[in-house]
Amino acid sequence: MERARIAVAGASGLIGSALVRSLTADGHEVVRLVRGAPRAAGEVRWAPEGGHVDRAGLAGCHAVVNLAGAGVGNRRWTAAYKARIRASRVHGTAALAEAVASLDEGERPRVFVNGSAIGYYGETGDRAVDESAPPGEGFLPSLCVEWENAAAPARDAGVRTVFTRTGLVVARGGGAWGRLFPLFRAGLGGRLGDGRQYWSFIALHDEVAAIRHLIDRDDLSGPFNLTAPHPVTNREVTAAMGRVLHRPALFGVPAPVLRVVLGEMAGDVLGSARVLPRRLLESGFRFAFPEIDSAIRAALR
C-alpha cells in the first residue's frame, strides 16, 4: 500500500502502539483518537462511551482501525466492570461506525478494521473451530456478538468492514504474557488448572502484520481469526516457557483457587478455545512465528 492516512483508536494499547510504530516506520500518517483534548499534531478527540467523534479528523483517511476497549483481564468481573467492558467496546464501535457512515462518500475510509476476540466462540474444548463456527454462550461470546454488530453502520454505508478476532497475544508489554514472563523468570510459573485447556496465541509481530494485511487487501471483509495456526494447551505453554527461559515450571494453580481469586473471569482462564486462522491462511498470509517457542523468543527480543 502506498503511503496513506490511517486513524487508530486504542493507539496507546499493546496492539495499537505496536501498529502505530509499524505504520509510521513505513511512512504512513497516523491519526490517533484520544479521549482528552488533543495535545499534539495528528490527534483527534473522541468520547467513545458518549458517542462523540470528531468526524472531520476521520475525513480522507484510507483506513480506520478500532482497537479500543477496557481490558478484559485487568480486574475481577464485577457487574460494574462488565458494564464498563461492554460500553467501551460496543458504544465505542457504534460511535466510530456512525461517524464513518456520516462522512461524504468521497471522504469515507476504504476500510474499517474493528477489534474483536476469540472469546466469540466461548468454550470449545478439544474441538477446533474457524470463522464459520457460531458464537458460544456466556458473557464474552455475547459481548463479541454485540461488539461486531455495532459496526453495522459502516458496513451498511458501503465501507469494507473487517473484524479481527484476536487470540492471546505473546508480548512482554502487556496481556496474558506480560504477566507470565515475570512469574516464570522468578521460577514461579506453572500450569493453570489441569493445563489441558487450549490457548490460541499469536505473536505481537504477527498480530500487527495480519492487521496490515487486512488493511491492504481490498477483497477481504468479515471476521478473521488472528491466532497462530498451531494452538497449544496450557501445559504446552508452561513447558515452552520453561524451555525458553531456562526455568523449571514447578508450580500449578488449582482450578478451585483460581475461581476464588478471579471469580467469573476464571472461566475464561480455565476455558479451552482451540481456534484456527482458516480465512487468514486462505488469503495468503504467512506467519513469521507460527509455533509457541518461536513466538515466546520473538517477544523476548
Rank of each mutant, 00 (worst) to 15 (best):
T124H: 09
A152K: 08
H91A: 15
L192V: 06
L188P: 07
N149T: 14
V31R: 04
A18V: 07
P38T: 13
A80K: 05
E107P: 00
L67Y: 01
E131D: 14
A83Y: 03
H28Y: 12
V44A: 14
R185W: 15
A288G: 11
D216S: 15
R286C: 07
P231K: 11
R84Q: 11
N225P: 02
H62R: 12
R172D: 02
N74K: 13
R185V: 02
I118G: 00
G73P: 03
A152V: 07
G189E: 06
H230Q: 14
I211V: 10
L262Q: 07
A95E: 04
D156Q: 15
W177H: 13
S132H: 06
L143T: 05
D194R: 12
S142A: 15
F285T: 02
L300C: 03
F287I: 06
A18H: 02
E207Q: 13
R247A: 09
V260N: 04
W199L: 15
G187Y: 06
F139I: 07
C144W: 01
R179M: 15
A80H: 12
P256L: 08
G27C: 07
V237M: 14
R279P: 00
S272I: 04
R179S: 10
A295S: 15
E49V: 14
P153G: 08
L140Y: 04
L220E: 13
G57W: 01
W199I: 15
L214F: 05
M241K: 05
L258M: 10
L220T: 08
G57P: 06
R45S: 07
A56P: 02
R55D: 10
A157C: 12
I15E: 01
L280V: 10
A7H: 04
E146W: 10
A94P: 00
R127Y: 06
V159D: 00
A56R: 10
E43K: 11
G71H: 01
R247W: 15
G174T: 11
I215R: 00
A228I: 01
H91C: 10
Q197M: 11
V30W: 08
G138M: 09
L103P: 01
G13Y: 11
A117Q: 06
S102Y: 14
T166I: 15
L300W: 09
D268W: 02
K82Q: 13
M1I: 03
H62G: 00
G175D: 05
V244E: 12
V111Y: 00
G136H: 03
R278V: 10
G267S: 11
L245F: 08
A209H: 00
P254C: 08
G122E: 08
R84K: 13
F112A: 04
G190R: 03
R89F: 12
L258E: 02
P248R: 13
R279Q: 08
F224S: 00
V232S: 01
F201L: 06
E43W: 06
A40F: 02
G138S: 13
A11S: 11
T78H: 08
V260R: 10
G195Y: 01
S294C: 05
E43M: 14
G125D: 09
F289V: 02
R160C: 09
V232F: 04
A239F: 03
L245S: 09
F112W: 06
L258H: 01
R89N: 07
R35K: 12
R172Q: 12
A176L: 14
R301N: 15
L23A: 03
D293M: 10
S200N: 05
P254V: 09
V159F: 04
G271L: 09
R89S: 05
A94G: 11
R278A: 12
G71P: 06
S88N: 12
R297T: 13
